[in-house]
């Protein structure tokens, strides 16, 4: 069971979130019925409210794919970039204007396939970005091709006999590359998700939140996972809090989604280190 005692506080209602953080003229959004991305977007808006960040000093960057539409719905500085390059553009923004809060909304394919290199190098440098991955295990917008997070032997339009690849675990990948904050969330636990994203925003340095989304239209249909409700129920039955997971065996954890903050540590932030270097070099020339 997820502890809800400290996550239900500070919740704004949806109408307030829409009028404060979103662009209501662009709603309802284009995502399919039952798509988890809407829930993640709401959690991001809630996290922005709870973290008390100034929208005029916030930039939302997205790449290409279903997830990329998110940048258009939140009313702050938005940048919709080319496929896989959201983190690359965000790195540029943070280096030019370190005072800005930069949030990247990306998908599983966008961040780990096309933009895989940008992800690992941003994590390695510990640059102050918050990356929210809308992980639906498939390329939804282009018609259901298998992505690097499609589970082994599951189906996609480009894997009609089953996917023989082993999937990426994006949070583990980022931690392996040196991310100082890594977390996983699930759309079923939406209140906890908002809290986790808030922690990511408050973290100084690179933070990544890998969120298990739902794609009933492509991933669900191709793999006979049933309706959006069935997929939500699957998440309900198969998510385990990270604290609980520590007491479980590998066998018990097989097929489970471990949610919560997986790593939270401090390290020098890249744009600050760069500013220090600039000062040092200028001082040397006097």
């Amino acid at each position: 069971m997820v502890d809800m005692t400290n996550v239900s506080k500070n919740t704004m209602n949806t109408a307030d979130i829409i009028y404060k953080y979103m662009r209501p003229e662009h709603l309802p959004h284009i995502w399919c019925p039952g798509c988890g991305n809407g829930i993640i977007l709401r959690a991001i808006a809630q996290a922005m409210e709870n973290a008390k960040i100034d929208r005029n000093k916030t930039v939302l960057v997205s790449g290409i794919g279903c997830s990329s539409r998110a940048a258009g719905y939140i009313d702050c500085n938005s940048l919709h970039t080319t496929h896989g390059r959201a983190i690359a553009f965000a790195t540029g923004i943070k280096m030019a204007h370190p005072e800005l809060e930069v949030i990247v909304i990306t998908g599983d394919g966008d961040s780990s396939a096309i933009g895989g290199n940008h992800l690992i190098h941003a994590a390695r440098r510990n640059i102050g970005l918050t990356v929210v991955v809308m992980n639906n295990n498939i390329y939804g917008m282009t018609g259901g091709q298998y992505s690097p997070t499609t589970p082994h032997l599951e189906y996609g339009t480009t894997a009609p006999y089953g996917n023989i690849d082993q999937p990426f675990d994006i949070a583990e990948l980022a931690m392996g590359a040196g991310a100082t904050f890594a977390a996983r969330g699930a759309v079923y636990h939406s209140a906890l998700l908002a809290k986790t994203i808030e922690k990511g925003i408050r973290h100084k340095g690179f933070s990544i939140i890998d969120v298990a989304s739902l794609c009933p239209t492509y991933y669900g249909r191709k793999n006979k996972k049933g309706s959006a409700v069935d997929m939500m129920r699957y998440q309900k039955d198969n998510t385990v809090m990270v604290e609980k997971a520590k007491t479980m065996t590998e066998e018990e954890l097989n097929g489970k989604i471990v949610i919560g903050v997986l790593r939270d540590k401090e390290a020098p932030e890249y744009s600050e280190e760069y500013a220090k270097l600039v000062e040092k070099v200028k001082g040397g020339n006097k």
Binding site: N13, T14, I17, L27, P28, W31, I39, R42, S190
Partner: peptide, 10 residues
């Protein structure tokens, strides 16, 4: 309200 993906109920 927390789980509606379309912000249609609150």
């Amino acid at each position: 309200e927390q789980r509606c993906p379309d912000y249609a109920i609150y």
